Simulated scan of single mutants.
Amino acid sequence: MSVFDNSNFFPEFPFSPSRLRHVQPRPPVTTASQPCKTAIAADLPEVAGPAPDAMPDAAVPGSAPPAIRMPAPQRPALRSLRTPPPPVPLRMLPLATFIWGSRALPPQPRTRADHALIWVTSGRLQLDYPRRHQTLRPGDLRLIPAGTAFAALPMQDARGHVALIPADLAALAGLPAAGLAAHVGAQAAHLLRLLTALASASGARDAGRTADLAALLPRCLATLDPERAPAAAPQIRTGDRDLVERFLTLARASLRDCLSLAELSGQLHCATAALDSACLAARGRRAIELIHDLRLECAAGLLRQGRLPTTQIARQAGYSSQTHFTRAFVAATGRTPEAFRAQPC
């Protein structure tokens, strides 16, 4: 028998069977926290819900919890992720690098989406419209509105400035919609400072300063001198015309020999300066420019006619090397010789 047999129990032992049979139920003990709990429970609002008997079977303990359906989240309205492009700034270009028009010989008029402010400070610029041709001289200024078809070809000695003004900036400044033809006189320094500052502010996206400077541009243009009358065509002497024709014939026949202008003048028994003056009077171009035109014309014809290598074409057209030919052809047409050949006529 175990050590805890019945004989070892005594009446006072708390767990003895006799003690358990005579234990009186004790009154409930009220603690300090119980009234608080009762008061808190009384203050809580009554939650409306189904009666215990009406609970679904899934709520019975031991059963799987019911599937809770959450409301679909409200998707926020989609905003366009495409931000508007930044405004195009005003650009300043050297006149010598501004060649505009179709890629033909010579360039044909084409339209632009921006306004072109062309200012010649030295040399000359050939400006062609569909039914009108002009030659800008030092001091001449032209404002060509957007959408106007024109072609611009600077001569080799041309120097100056070209401001490409976006349409929105031109509208903000209030530039004349019909364009402008003027002569820059005493306002040259002020106009150059204004255009440079406007290009800098526009490129830095400084809207306030750009607007202030743009408002000054039409005022400055209004102070320029009026357009000069075109110079009277010089009287061409018969001797000059004959000399130029003989010069062109000799230069075309000797392109492959790469003769210099002095050598050509020697064969024509005239001075280089006299030949240059005769070419200016008869053709409006210097003698060296006419030679360049002949070389380009010969090279373009050979590129269109056959499949001769460009090295051979450069030699027949009178260029000193393939590099010289490519550089001169790109400067004149905007395309390499290979691209010019691949493009249909």
Results as ranks from 00 to 15, higher is better:
Ala273Val: 14
Leu264Met: 15
Arg209Asp: 04
Ala253Leu: 10
Arg219Trp: 12
Gln126Val: 10
Leu117Lys: 02
Ile99Glu: 03
Leu81Tyr: 08
Thr97Pro: 00
Asn6Thr: 14
Glu289Val: 03
Ser33Gly: 14
Thr135Phe: 02
Gln305Thr: 15
Ala229Asp: 11
Pro130Gly: 07
Leu224Arg: 04
Leu243Pro: 01
Arg315Ala: 14
Phe247Glu: 01
Pro107Lys: 03
Val162Thr: 02
Ser277Ala: 15
Met155Ala: 14
Thr121Ala: 06
Leu303Glu: 02
Leu180Phe: 05
Gln24Ala: 13
Leu195Arg: 02
Ala229Arg: 13
Ser200Pro: 08
Arg69Trp: 11
Val330Lys: 12
Leu141Gly: 02
Pro25Leu: 05
Phe4Arg: 15
Ser2Cys: 09
Leu93Glu: 07
Ala215Tyr: 08
Ala72Phe: 05
Gly160Gln: 02
Ala113Gln: 12
Pro109Lys: 06
Leu198Gln: 07
Gly203Glu: 11
Arg142Leu: 06
Ala231Pro: 03
Ala281Ser: 12
Ser254Glu: 13
Pro154Ile: 00
Leu248Asp: 11
Pro27Met: 07
Leu172Val: 13
Phe10Pro: 00
Ser202Trp: 01
Ala232Glu: 12
Ala199Val: 03
Pro85Lys: 08
Asp240Ser: 10
Ala189Thr: 10
Ala332His: 00
Met92Arg: 09
Ala41Met: 12
Ala207Gln: 12
Leu294Trp: 04
Phe15His: 14
Arg209Leu: 11
Asp168Asn: 07
Arg327Gly: 02
Val29Pro: 01
Gln187Ile: 04
Pro61Gln: 07
Gln343Gly: 11
Arg246Gln: 11
Glu289Tyr: 01
Arg159Glu: 00
Ile99Phe: 05
Arg110His: 13
Ala158Thr: 00
Phe10Asp: 11
Val29Gln: 13
Ser202Met: 03
Pro145Leu: 07
Trp119Leu: 04
His133Asp: 09
Leu296Lys: 00
Arg241Val: 02
Ala170Asp: 06
Ala281Asp: 08
Glu263Tyr: 03
Ser16His: 06
Leu20Gly: 03
Ala278Arg: 04
Ala167Pro: 06
Gly318Met: 00
Arg103Trp: 10
Ala204Tyr: 03
Arg69Tyr: 11
Arg193Phe: 04
Cys345Ile: 15
Pro45Trp: 04
Pro138Asp: 02
Gln34Phe: 10
Leu294Val: 04
Ser321Pro: 08
Pro17Asn: 11
Pro35Tyr: 09
Ala215Lys: 11
Gly185Ile: 01
Arg256Asn: 14
Gln74Glu: 12
Leu221Thr: 03
Val88Tyr: 05
Ala229Thr: 14
Val23Asp: 06
Gly301Val: 06
Arg228Ile: 09
Pro52Asn: 08
Cys345His: 15
Ala278Trp: 00
Gly174Thr: 05
Leu224Gln: 02
Pro226Met: 04
Ile313Val: 13
Ala41Leu: 13
Ser320Ala: 15
Ala171Asp: 13
Leu303Asp: 01
Ala178Glu: 10
Thr196Lys: 09
Asp212Met: 10
Arg335Phe: 04
Val330His: 11
